[in-house]
């Protein structure tokens, strides 16, 4: 409802703003001609004369302020068009200030790319560990982005680790702002850290896999799997694996009733590649709840040998 209202307001505002005229070709041509003339400053405001009428020191101070304010910092030199630079970070490199990004030192094990401007460099970090030191008071506005996070910094040291679990940001000194792609931006000070979780279903599946492989608490894996199922699109393989791992996580948490329900849903949906495993987990959960009798239907589905094993 609120989104509908916002959309309607957007449309109303956009309709009004659409009535604003665009720049005319004549205006664009005039500016272009002036720029191409080279060191053009003839049209910049210059002080033609100061008529300090009936004023004393106060007016003099104001005039001085005005002179300062209208001073242009545009040089009258020839225009030079140098070649811009973009480069790739890859493999391993020690601490270095090599001029690639002025006032920024990097050490890393992984890969990414550098773009943006020297005042506002932007590192797109794909995977691995990236350590960053930004010289303070130099006005460098560095941003590091991963799929999960955006870190903004002015003069500080921090590290960004991107792996299957997500993106981890740890601040050594200074402070940074971290945007995990949700509404809230987190301000971190020295010693603090945050992990931005993956947002895609495949990314969340990767996180769950990594957690389960590391024997992390099953509840953490279950949370990642539930998040993944909430955002999964028409990707049968990802959905299938998320559901299967969810059954496994529920069993690990001894939530046997939920595990049986989830396994039943998986099996009845059909087409899954882990049908047999789901039946076995459901049988084990049913046995834990009520013994072999309760597990019998699942055991029968799993095969006669399983029934015998239960007895």
């Amino acid at each position: 409802m609120i989104e509908d209202r916002e959309h309607q307001d957007d449309m109303r505002a956009a309709r009004l703003l659409a009535s604003l005229p665009d720049a005319t070709p004549a205006a664009v041509h005039r500016v272009r001609t002036r720029v191409l003339k080279g060191p053009v400053t003839a049209h910049l405001p210059v002080v033609r004369g100061l008529r300090l009428v009936g004023v004393g020191a106060f007016a003099g101070a104001l005039a001085a302020a005005a002179l300062f304010a209208v001073r242009t910092d545009i040089e009258r030199s020839q225009i030079v068009v140098p070649v811009p630079v973009a480069f790739t970070l890859d493999a391993t490199q020690g601490w270095a200030i090599d001029g690639s990004i002025p006032n920024v030192a990097l050490s890393y094990t992984g890969s990414g790319t550098v773009g943006g401007t020297s005042d506002a460099p932007r590192i797109t970090w794909d995977s691995g560990l990236l350590n960053v030191e930004v010289t303070s008071d130099k006005g460098v506005r560095l941003a590091v982005t991963t799929k999960e996070a955006e870190v903004r910094v002015i003069g500080t040291g921090f590290s960004v680790t991107r792996d299957a679990l997500g993106t981890r940001v740890d601040v050594r000194h200074g402070h940074v702002e971290v945007d995990c792609g949700d509404e809230a931006t987190r301000a971190l000070t020295a010693g603090a850290g945050v992990t931005c979780l993956p947002r895609s279903a495949a990314g969340l599946l990767g996180r769950a896999r990594a957690l389960q492989a590391a024997n992390a608490p099953a509840a953490d894996a279950l949370e990642a799997l539930d998040r993944g199922l909430a955002v999964v699109g028409p990707q049968p393989a990802v959905r299938d694996e998320l559901n299967a791992r969810r059954v496994s996580a529920l069993y690990a948490l001894a939530r046997h009733g939920d595990a049986i329900d989830a396994a039943r849903a998986y099996v009845s949906a059909g087409g899954g590649t882990r049908q047999a495993e789901m039946v076995q987990i459901a049988a084990a959960s049913a046995q834990a709840l009520g013994g072999c009798g309760t597990a019998a239907p699942w055991l029968l589905e799993a095969g006669a040998i399983a029934v015998e094993a239960c007895r």
Binding site: V31, R34, S77, V83, P84, G116, S118, R122
Partner: peptide
């Protein structure tokens, strides 16, 4: 006009 004078002078700072 001033925007482009500044931009062309500082083009070397545009990495990407």
């Amino acid at each position: 006009h001033d925007v482009f004078i500044v931009a062309l002078r500082r083009l070397d700072r545009l990495y990407d």
